[in-house]
Amino acid sequence: MKKILLSISILMGICANAQEVKPEAPAVDTTKAWSIQGQNTLMLNQAAFSNWVGGGANNVGWLAGVNYNLTYEKGKDLWENIIILGYGQNNTKGIGTRKTQDVINLSTNYGREFAKNWYLSGGLGLQTQFAAGYEDGNNPEAAKISNFMAPGYLNIGVGVTYRPNDNLTVTLRPANARWTFVLDEDLQNAGTYGLKNDGDSSLFQFGFLGTAIYKLKIMENINLTNTASVFSNYLDHPERLVLSYSGILNMKINKFISTNITLDLLYDHNQIQKTQLKQTLGVGFAYNIDNGKKRSENKNNQSWLK
């Protein structure tokens, strides 16, 4: 009887141990498909004078902006969205308030990988400004030369995108439609921004668009973002290239303070037959957002913002 009870006890113990052993759960992929990198800035400047023999005028200025990159990457799919908004003013005693920065730049581009780092892609982009611009240093008493959606540029096209890592993106669109909008009736004159007739509100062009973004980490907390583009209109004077370059040098002092230097160059025969240049320098508050995660071995995960 004792032998039977011993055998039953051993058997029950083996069954209990067998029930406790559980198969290993499959590994959960916690890698995010979405990554969001962005910078919010508020730059301030001020100067005051009292009985200063060297002369000078009291002034105060501000510049606010956001720069966001929202990227979805999973499998062979790549979807990149860019939001750039900026506006600034300066008020000088005896002169008044003048605009110092004004930009709206929105773009989206979706691609499907067909070879390593190469994507068949299509997308659109919109560029314009918030407020009116005037001759003579944005003097509102002078002639108006621009306004919201005057001009406004809308690009829609298809082509290929090369993206070996998060620091370099090159997009080539041999089929790109480009609309120039002039929605301010005061500016709808023949020749303004390429308009063909008085009263026209838009101009259609079709051609080649190439864009490139290159992000360079110069040293710790000093980063340079370069953006360039070229457009050629197949339909009329393809040799008159629209060329643009934008450089942003960000020097981070600490988590909330940074210095930004920007340089913009533009040549557009339909605007003015000269090279346009804009440069800004600001020191102020900056708050970075970076919740992206490495999504594959050949991605650097937007290291330019770290």
Rank of each mutant, 00 (worst) to 15 (best):
N288H: 02
S146M: 10
E220G: 04
G157D: 07
D77L: 13
K215L: 01
A177D: 03
I253A: 13
Q302E: 12
L203Y: 02
I104E: 06
N291G: 09
L187H: 04
A142T: 07
R173P: 01
N69V: 14
K252H: 01
I248W: 00
L126V: 15
V230T: 15
K306S: 08
F181T: 13
I218C: 04
K3P: 02
A48I: 12
G88A: 05
K293M: 15
L63G: 05
N17V: 12
P238T: 14
L195I: 07
W179S: 05
T280H: 10
L124Y: 05
A142Y: 03
F114S: 11
N298T: 15
K22H: 06
N165S: 07
V283P: 03
N165H: 04
A190Y: 01
S107Q: 13
S246A: 11
H237S: 11
Q271A: 14
Y162D: 04
V158C: 09
G282T: 15
L124A: 15
P174G: 11
K299T: 14
N223L: 04
K116F: 00
W179H: 04
K22L: 11
D186A: 15
Q271H: 02
L5G: 01
N69F: 03
G111M: 10
L63V: 10
T259K: 01
T108P: 01
M149E: 01
D198W: 02
T171I: 08
G133W: 01
Q279I: 10
M43Y: 03
T71K: 14
G210F: 07
N260P: 05
G56Q: 06
F206V: 09
N300M: 10
E73M: 05
L78Y: 11
V182T: 08
A131G: 02
E141S: 11
A47G: 07
A143P: 00
N301Y: 00
K299N: 09
S35M: 14
N155W: 03
V170F: 07
M149G: 03
V60P: 00
Y245A: 12
I83G: 12
K255Q: 12
A25R: 15
I261D: 03
Y193R: 11
L11I: 08
E141Y: 05
A33K: 13
G61N: 13
Q37R: 09
Q302Y: 02
I84D: 12
V21H: 03
T41L: 04
